[in-house]
């Protein structure tokens, strides 16, 4: 049986389930208590589980991540909320130099079950530092895992997958999708760990993306279909490790791949997908793998974000270019 809910609610329900299942799970972050977070994703959880399970912290991202590490050392499973994508950098050192390396430094005797939730991406018309897509920094860091759901159903299950992980997980939440509704099946068996998924089948071009971009890829595929082009869409879901098999299989089928992301394209998750497809599907390709991304500039003022961010038109333009080879 499925229920209709927003992604924000699905994340809330996923965390509620995790808090109820395991008394060692803690939520911590800025304004996540009575306010329920600036996006209300943790709404009602402190009232339900108390302020020893859902902690409003001082306003310090390095402090949040650093103390979460200590809490994990003492046997807890902290889930940290970073308020906005662009505010993660004060915590970057603790994430990359400590959190990501502690299991290796301990030669495997210490697990680091810490989740760091990051609302990310554009399309909300916000001020500087509030619309960024910093996932590549973390995908580049050994020791971390990265997940990013595109639908409420995936969000409900993937946040629980992240909390159950014994490794640190960066959980990137596409904030422009928080209020989009979708069907959530709480009775299903969940989803396979770190799996990508074909969300629309097609035969001529493969579009690959993650997070908020996935719904745009589906729109592009629909418009392309009206013009007679059959487009397949793959949702990465996991950015580290990337589940390449479905992507490579799709590339072998269609021969043309376009990778789309909000983040700047230079040295990005999309670059890795392009390189791996080239390595593993070389003889199937009819065109070079193309990328559509945010430009390699700082995220611009909001009135320019529609220019900066990938759009359906830019995606269809890339589809046309791929087909022209």
């Amino acid at each position: 049986m499925t229920e209709t809910m927003t992604m924000a609610k699905a994340l809330n329900e996923g965390m509620r389930a995790a808090l109820a299942r395991d008394s060692r799970v803690l939520l911590m972050g800025e304004d996540i208590g009575p306010l329920g977070g600036v996006f209300r994703v943790t709404e009602g959880l402190q009232a339900e589980f108390g302020d020893k399970r859902v902690l409003d912290t001082p306003l310090a991202e390095s402090g949040i991540v650093g103390t979460a590490i200590g809490l994990a050392m003492s046997g807890f499973r902290p889930v940290c909320e970073i308020q906005f994508d662009g505010f993660i950098f004060p915590g970057f050192d603790q994430i990359t130099s400590q959190l990501a390396k502690l299991t290796a430094r301990h030669e495997g005797t210490l697990t680091m079950p810490v989740v760091i939730r990051v609302p990310y991406g554009g399309h909300i018309g916000a001020v500087e530092h509030h619309q960024e897509s910093p996932e590549a920094y973390f995908a580049h860091t050994p020791g971390l895992r990265l997940l990013s759901p595109a639908t409420p159903h995936d969000a409900y299950w993937m946040i629980q997958e992240a909390i159950a992980s014994n490794d640190p997980v960066m959980f990137f939440e596409p904030k422009s999708r928080y209020w989009q509704k979708g069907e959530v099946d709480r009775e299903s068996a969940g989803i396979a760990t770190h799996s990508s998924r074909v969300v629309r089948e097609g035969t001529e071009v493969t579009l690959v993306g993650h997070g908020a971009i996935v719904s745009m890829l589906l729109q592009a595929a629909e418009l392309a279909a009206e013009e007679g082009t059959s487009v397949e869409v793959v949702d990465l879901r996991s950015l580290s490790p990337i589940d390449f098999d479905p992507i490579v299989a799709s590339a072998q089928k269609t021969g043309r791949v376009v990778v789309v992301q909000e983040a700047p394209g230079n040295v990005s998750v999309g670059s890795e997908v392009a390189a791996t497809v080239a390595e593993r599907a070389f003889y199937s390709l009819e065109a070079p793998v193309l990328r559509v991304s945010g430009y390699d500039t700082p995220f611009p003022p909001a009135k320019l974000e529609s220019v900066y961010l990938p759009s359906v038109d830019r995606i269809l333009d890339a589809v046309d270019r791929a087909l022209a080879y």
């Binding site: 650093g66 809490l71 994990a72």
Partner: peptide, 18 residues
């Protein structure tokens, strides 16, 4: 990394309290 462990210690102590 200079000073990083002070936060880990504090987090551990938060856990002792909890």
């Amino acid at each position: 990394v200079i000073g990083s462990q002070t936060l880990h210690a504090t987090g551990y102590a938060m856990g002792l309290n909890l």
